[in-house]
């Protein structure tokens, strides 16, 4: 127990520093601008302590578990040399981590409400359910595809900006044809798909691949997977809004 504490002392201190800005902002607005007492100060302190501890544990676990396994698997795939299985893995990782993502489930449900209100689908629970599920699968599919394209880019060494510009053009074109009600949700869906566990894993995968393939630079080629994963959902969600 004592050993664990010494191990965590440094990360704990870092977490306190990471969270200090939020505490300062909330305290300033609550006390100075809104001029109201802080409700349930005890609960707030306990909660903050939990957040600090949680962040410290997470960062520690990240360095011990998530980063190493992401990189090791990338090296092993590169050594195995089977592009097919690497692609299958990339797709599974993108699809599997997105389909159950809580933030996405929330956005899909809200989108169904908007669609029902806008008269795009029948205003019934069943229609909204199936609309939300369809949307969720669409986004997960698009993230799977994004990681596949991103991994292919690392293997081939294509410059990241060319693909991103193509994606931007795609988003702009879709914006002109998609129903206006869906645009806000589509744009937001790009940001919510990448969760706290997906990001470190996918980053480690990209960096690991780029450093095990000859001629690739881990900095210029290894990053960029997340960028694709936040771009394709926008295009796919607008497409989904157009078809239905």
């Amino acid at each position: 127990m004592k050993k664990l504490f010494i191990l965590l002392a440094r990360p704990l201190f870092d977490s306190v520093r990471d969270l200090a800005p939020i505490i300062a902002v909330i305290a300033f607005f609550q006390l100075v601008i809104l001029r109201q007492p802080i409700p349930d100060l005890g609960g707030l302190l306990v909660g903050t302590a939990l957040v600090v501890l949680g962040l410290a544990l997470f960062i520690h676990g990240l360095k011990m578990g998530l980063f190493p396994i992401g990189e090791t698997m990338a090296h092993d795939f590169a050594r195995k040399g089977s592009v097919f299985w690497l692609m299958a893995f990339a797709f599974a990782l993108g699809f599997g981590t997105t389909v159950a993502e809580p933030a996405l489930i929330a956005v899909a449900d809200e989108a169904a409400v908007v669609a029902a209100k806008g008269g795009m689908i029948v205003d019934s629970d069943e229609a909204m359910r199936s609309y939300a599920d369809g949307l969720r699968l669409t986004v997960a599919l698009s993230v799977g595809l994004a990681i596949v394209i991103g991994v292919l880019r690392i293997i081939k060494g294509w410059p990241v900006q060319n693909l991103i510009v193509v994606g931007y053009v795609g988003v702009v074109i879709m914006t002109f044809f998609a129903p206006p009600e869906i645009i806000g949700i589509a744009y937001d869906s790009g940001g919510v798909t990448t969760s706290t566990i997906t990001v470190p894993l996918v980053t480690a995968l990209g960096v690991g691949l780029a450093s095990s393939i000859q001629g690739r630079n881990p900095l210029t080629d290894g990053f960029g997977l997340i960028a694709f994963a936040s771009l394709t959902p926008m295009i796919f969600v607008m497409g989904y809004g157009m078809i239905l």
């Binding site: 544990l57 676990g61 990240l62 011990m64 578990g65």
Partner: peptide, 13 residues
């Protein structure tokens, strides 16, 4: 062990 840390950490967080 790293995974367990990540799980616990995220849950606390």
């Amino acid at each position: 062990v790293g995974f367990v840390f990540v799980l616990l950490g995220l849950a606390f967080f």
